[in-house]
Design a binder for these strands. Structure first.
Lengths: 222, 222
DNA sequence: AATAATATTTAGTTTTAAATAAAATTTTTC
DNA sequence: GAAAAATTTTATTTAAAACTAAATATTATT
């Protein structure tokens, strides 16, 4: 079985690799380890044929590496939804628990909860859940602070790194699926004013950066 | 957090310590590691105040050690029942999955599944589940091969080490809760003949050793 | 009680995984 | 093309967990 560290490196590379090859420094910053440690791990991952690694040129996941990464991400997102909807975990606690358990549940465990939930497409933060065969549906979203005034939007997902922020957003009612209209945007990275549930709310720019939205539509896109 | 190895040593000591202090060799045989490795670990456990260890005299769990052990056993047994009854795992697969996950689920996770199941007292093999406060109900049972002829008995639990055997027993319908009458016992460790569901079945002595029974009673004892 | 057999501990290594700092090298930038 | 930044190499470090072989303690046997 792959170690937890190896799995975490793969997850990180997957997350960062949208813009082509991923550099040592990017990984180093994300995982908060030294560059030398990253180089060491990249060599190991390369020997396991999980990444294509060229010195000084960065890494990319191989097909095998992608499969493994998607499996971990699938575990994580299925767990988050299951913890929230079936075990009544609060939204701010699901991330930590899922981050730990994602490495240890069997494929069978993942499949069982997937069946029970009826093959859901999105986790509680609005992230798409890869299918068992490794298909990850994509959708276009952007942070709330980049949306133009007047737009009718829907919250698609929340950045899930800060659990305090999540708790705050939950309390405000700013959850995935909620419909908003952008009324005003103060200049120089000022706060964003939105209307929702017939109330006006003012959202600080730093917070708005963590709320990812899509243009309004009736159905959640695939 | 305690490592998986540490947790496994504690579980093993708990299991073996009914007859007083546990010897190095007993642990060594159970975990299939060298005696020297056991001594090394016992020193570490002792430094952590999880066991009382006296060279050459064996170990006992401290109160702290018992609390931790019972927590792990609680996780294991709650998981087994949950996997079986809520995630539809087959009986022979729950042990392996629970053995892995027991080390990684949070207390909150354990409490949630405990709540959902209504604070069950026994796992699918008939083993008692410790309460959150660490109370482990005891019951007297003995292996089927030691029961006298004519006894009306109930299967209390099955030894859970051999998953092939478990699958076989499940197929035979020999499950915890089933009522049996012992009709015959062949001498010299021969097979045991039992009546159950109005059929006679002959059970080999080696198999009978793994079926633990209690004298008949309407309710499962506490 | 002496000796043999067994159990246990000690001492010294080994393995593996993961990390590090400092020095060397390559790439990028100005 | 030199300086700055990024990356790799080299050589260590840490930690957990295991091992073998030798030494010692305990228990059993005669």
């Amino acid at each position: 079985m792959l170690s937890r560290s190896v799995q975490d490196y793969l997850k990180t590379i997957f997350k960062l690799q949208e813009g082509g090859a991923v550099s040592t420094t990017e990984i180093s910053k994300e995982l908060k380890v030294s560059g030398a440690s990253v180089t060491g791990m990249l060599k190991r991952l390369s020997a396991m044929e999980l990444v294509d690694y060229n010195s000084y040129k960065g890494v990319k996941l191989t097909e095998k590496g992608k499969v493994v990464s998607l499996e971990i991400i699938r575990h994580h997102r299925l767990l988050e939804l299951y913890l929230k909807d079936h075990l009544e975990f609060s939204l701010e606690k699901v991330h930590e628990e899922a981050c730990r358990l994602e490495h240890y549940i069997s494929e069978e465990f993942a499949d069982k909860i997937d069946d029970i939930m009826g093959h859901p497409q999105f986790d509680p933060h609005g992230h798409p859940i890869p299918t068992k065969s490794g298909v990850l549906s994509e959708f276009e979203d952007k942070p709330l602070n980049e949306v133009e005034v007047g737009a009718n939007i829907q919250i698609k997902r929340l950045s899930d790194t800060d659990s305090e922020l999540l708790a705050y957003l939950e309390e405000m009612g700013l959850m995935p699926g909620v419909q908003l209209t952008v009324l005003e945007k103060a200049p120089f990275n000022g706060p964003v004013t939105v209307k929702f549930a017939n109330e006006e709310k003012i959202i600080g720019n730093e917070i708005a950066k963590n709320i990812f939205v899509i243009m309004n539509c009736d159905e959640i896109p695939e």
